[in-house]
Design a protein around this nucleic acid. Structure first.
Lengths: 218, 218
DNA sequence: ATAACAGTGTTATAATAATAACATCAAATT
DNA sequence: AATTTGATGTTATTATTATAACACTGTTAT
């Protein structure tokens, strides 16, 4: 019997993990829901409720044991066995992600890149870059489930098809194109333009607040 | 009188913009709420409701004029005058973002980078890289409001202070550290680890679905 | 001219999520 | 030993968000 949690809650779980590691590095052994809530600017009820749902329990007066929460979180996330991830498209962003350290903390390892530009192929590199023609075989032989898509917008739909055919189950899409996920493939988007545009909107809003402001959320 | 829309709705607006540009490039002049809804996998009521809230109106039988929606969207987002953005931290990710084309469509331009590593300084480059010491002056002289933070995790809090003191109003934070935004500064986070970990969770879930599954959203 | 249609715009409903409130109980204090 | 305290765990309440339903109306067809 497996429980399914929604995207937001899982994201919050990840955030809890981050802040708890920070608390731990500061020498703390236990935390109160209040500490976490304040650090993350949410209500303490929500923290306790999340913990309740995730099956994390504390003691009546002593709060929660950090290590115990972390264990439980890793259990829920299925962290434990290393997750092998490939990158398709080794342009600027793909390159940056390949070199990026810091995934290891989360049990994630980027194991290979794939490219059409033959000048970038380099199977001898620490993290090897193969031609896309080898994608299918590689994915099958190494039972890869997750791919990061960092190709030019033009070829995003085609690349999606390639990944699907190769048997990839989850895609992190750095392309501006919104891909319709289908047939048991999970697609998450990272859209930096949108993030920026959104930020700009809210910053400009602050300026306009000189004029009288009306909040609209209906 | 300015209306404030929530983050989700603004994101959706951006997504509308993207899909509408695609429709337009395919030769369409008008769209129906259904078209948009299907392309984005949401309900058509939501599309119409959003449009209503944003003051976008269509005609009873002919749907919506794409150009008219796009105009209105740009108006709401305040796109029009070019938004100048700086990057602080010119490592792999900062570098990739500096070179990234595609912001221009959204009226966003990256105008400069700032670094502590003096080997990377290059004020003559097309997009100049200055030492962080010049941050404050540059921001004031060029009235920069938005910064992308792509520094190592270690120095993220300190960098935030620098940006705040320089007068930056909005930060897109690529650091894993969650910054508490304060005093009228808007901080948005892009956390690639979290995106990946989230994706992995949902992919693993699919596997576990062989066992009997219970959905939990209470 | 009239009827049928096919879409918008809006209201009603349902689902979801977050907060507030509080009962409960272990630990600390007196 | 009795009392206070202070945090959890849970229930009740409120707010928010998305969907479904449908009334309305311009357009097309007959």
């Amino acid at each position: 019997m497996v429980k399914i949690f929604d995207r937001e809650r899982i994201f919050r779980l990840l955030t809890y993990k981050g802040i708890l590691l920070k608390f731990k590095s500061l020498g703390f052994i236990r935390v109160f829901s209040d500490n976490i809530a304040e650090a993350l600017d949410i209500s303490s009820s929500l923290v306790r409720k999340d913990f309740g749902i995730f099956g994390i329990s504390g003691s009546q007066k002593g709060g929660y044991h950090i290590d115990r929460i972390l264990e439980k979180i890793n259990e829920i996330l299925g962290t434990g066995d290393l997750q092998k991830v490939i990158i398709i498209g080794v342009g600027r962003i793909g390159e940056a992600l390949i070199r990026y350290k810091g995934f290891e903390n989360d049990g994630i390892k980027i194991v290979a890149g794939f490219e059409t530009d033959h000048r970038k192929i380099n199977p001898q590199a620490e993290i090897p870059i193969y031609p896309v023609e080898e994608l299918r075989d590689y994915v099958r032989k190494n039972s890869i489930k997750i791919a990061i898509m960092a190709v030019p917008e033009m070829v995003s739909q085609h690349t999606y098809e390639l990944l699907r055919e190769a048997g990839i189950k989850g895609i992190l899409n750095f392309t501006p194109t919104s891909i319709k996920s289908s047939e048991g493939i999970v697609v998450n988007h990272v859209n930096i333009e949108h993030e920026l545009a959104n930020l700009i909107y809210f910053v400009n809003l602050e300026n306009r607040k000189d004029e009288d402001t009306i909040s609209n959320n209906q």
